[in-house]
Amino acid sequence: MTTTRRTLLQRVRDPADREAWEQFFELYAPLLESYARAHGLSRADAQEVRDQCLEVLVRRLPTFEYERARGRFQAWLHEIARGKVIDLARRARLVRGESGPLASLEDADPGPDQHWERQWRSEHLRYGLREALRDEEDGSRRAFELLLLDETTVPDVCERTGLNANQVYKAKARILRKVRDILEKLGVE
């Protein structure tokens, strides 16, 4: 985040930016896989969906015009993922004679998709949190993690981390700001 002001999606347009690609996979691979699983695909098929989608992304992202129009990338990726899930589910049905909960997905217009929306957000939050905590000192990271647990109070956190209350509050504010910055760059409000 500090190394460059460009967004992740801008950075991955450069195939040589390996760090960006790694982060990109970190973020989108679990999202795609859990989306496919949520539509009833087996683990193997879900991984297939994930890989096929990532392949499409690798090929097409360098020329993808990202206009900061919020949600555009999300909709685009959703479209790709949805198509792949349908393909794989059809194949599974053909090959194994399985019947799946695919009818809804196939018939519905590619409008709002509850699974997709929810997982998109939670994967991004998870990623943002992880990234924000990455360069933090052990103490502040631990403090923030403890604060996230319902029962812990600031005095508890101070006792367990050796930080004072002021440091804890500062850490919390700093980390939250970082998360928000990361999410904003990814086009997530």
Binding site: L125, R126, L148, L149, K172, A173, R177, R180
Partner: peptide
């Protein structure tokens, strides 16, 4: 906004 975000993150952590 931070409070909302913090609650969301709590949900994720939980």
């Amino acid at each position: 906004r931070d409070a909302v975000l913090f609650e969301e993150l709590k949900g994720i952590a939980r």
